[in-house]
Design a protein around this nucleic acid. Sequence first.
DNA 1: CGACGCCGTGGAATCGATTACACGGATGAT
DNA 2: ATCATCCGTGTAATCGATTCCACGGCGTCG
Lengths: 338, 338
Amino acid sequence: MASIKDVAAEAGVSVATVSRVLNSHPSVSAEARTRVLAAVEALGYRPNAVARSLRTAQTRTLGLVISDVLNPYFTELARFVEEEARALGYSVIIGNADERPELQDHHIRTLIDRRIDGLLVSPADGGSPLMRDVALGGTPMVFVDRWIPGIDVPVVRADGTGAVKDLVAHLHGLGHRRLAIIAGPAATTTGNERVEAFREALRGLGLALPDAYIGQGDFQAASGRRATERFLALAEPPEVVFAADNLMALGALDAIRARGLRVPDDIALAAFDDIPWFVHTDPPITAIAQPTADLARAAVRALADLIEGRTPQSVTLPARLVVRRSSGGAATNQRSDR
Amino acid sequence: MASIKDVAAEAGVSVATVSRVLNSHPSVSAEARTRVLAAVEALGYRPNAVARSLRTAQTRTLGLVISDVLNPYFTELARFVEEEARALGYSVIIGNADERPELQDHHIRTLIDRRIDGLLVSPADGGSPLMRDVALGGTPMVFVDRWIPGIDVPVVRADGTGAVKDLVAHLHGLGHRRLAIIAGPAATTTGNERVEAFREALRGLGLALPDAYIGQGDFQAASGRRATERFLALAEPPEVVFAADNLMALGALDAIRARGLRVPDDIALAAFDDIPWFVHTDPPITAIAQPTADLARAAVRALADLIEGRTPQSVTLPARLVVRRSSGGAATNQRSDR
DNA sequence: CGACGCCGTGGAATCGATTACACGGATGAT
DNA sequence: ATCATCCGTGTAATCGATTCCACGGCGTCG
């Protein structure tokens, strides 16, 4: 593969001049420029990004560590992150933690070893020592969706309290009084917040959230299934199950169906994180939708600000309730969101 | 960030010795080794992958260019690719082409600029000049799922002909005679192959595939909707719609439902590419499942073989039919896959 | 007892870029 | 006419690793 030296030789100039042309430095004669450009063309030369990064100490690359690629919410997030990053001249390397802290650390380490310019993280846990070190160590970092208390980096996330309140009010209006939730891991902020918002909304209507109605999940389908089975085995099972993410909602749907019960007639269902598939499930699932594209954009911009020396902003955007059949009482010909 | 020089100074040895310790070169005294290791520990030193890559001319990184991250099939593929690559000591950088050839080229170019060791591609089109150049230029490359005729690189893919035949036989057995297909882009191999397999299977049963029953899609949901609307507007609409991928099947489901028809009573539906969500749609969708994990593993291994100088193998694995309710006549309590 | 070989080590070249600095020639000011 | 300035260019240092080569010391063998 041709190097800058080959180009210099071909054009009859020094490597410095070639480099200047390539970086559109002003002081290059028109003649030299055309000769260099011709040589570049002739050799099909492309600058070696590795060498360039070594010298300039920047890679124009962002690392994105997400907790689960198979979760459509994160896939969508990743897609928009890449889009915005590309618009700002950055590439993105995705690391999938699979909700496993040690895998998350592995990815963070490799990303740092590659000297990415900044890190976008949706932490799978309460924060490893490594993550602290990285943040303290000066690597530009932004949390998206989930964050870790005590680590002082910008956070870009959605606030679901309003939407959860709307959801609970909606369910209450349908006459439901026994509402249960399948929570995410206690180590994640989203895990806790969603439970708290739910509890708060219930309290506002004079309802309690008994411990038996809090299922412990891990944001994966299987845990949603287990938690739901436990609910259904109670002497007084809940009338509503609210899953703190989409995968657990799927597990819940499974469990309910396996029991021979119908949604929403026998038990209502709702989930956090709306995804295209929820329109097509049986029944369509009521969900709380996050403004994923906006979150992704805001997160990338905050990270770019941090990298380029501007002051980044933490951003919180509101989530909103999308009512479908699974919660009962929804209009049948609902506006088809997707 | 500490460099190898700092470590050398701290340990009181030369950089050469540090490097030898780090690469577990045999001729280093035990004493030097412990001193170096201690210095590494004390400084929290991590080798700079950029510098290492420049010197060794290898990045231990694979590029994976897929046509659409939002398609769960590719997400799953990406996940398994990363898993296998990690097992073999490689990282993976994913480029999402969004079914857009120019975006595909963009990603290929950036990946090459970063001097990735090899490229795994599921081409979104019939092959750009760039892709040819890269393949000819000696960059190790393997096609996965889709490939480009005329470019001589290993191909790892699933063969759906058997499963398509099973599907058509199944539908024929239910009395259906008018079967339509929503094809993928003609520029992709999977686009064509699936139509051909379908046509062939029909012919085997003495049925024809009229042009009116071939819808042109682009592997995205909206195109599935449009093609289906066209089918339903025919004087003699088909009794079955077979979508060449999962996203188009979703679009088809939309269109059918919008017409107020029921699946499978009014019209049957099936799709290529099975995904977890198909179990939960209304009704569950009959699909042809690819052995995604095995494909991913085989593809990564072939690429690693190519990179490391061994002889790579093209691999073709059979896809299999998974019957669910959308095709009609399925047992209700079907083995619940996944 | 001398020569040879091996082992552990360090010095220095190298990968492919960027960039500070120096230099020669032309231009403008006095 | 002389001197300062500026412009275009080249030389060389540099980034952080790896690795070839040379060298000194020691053990072994003839």
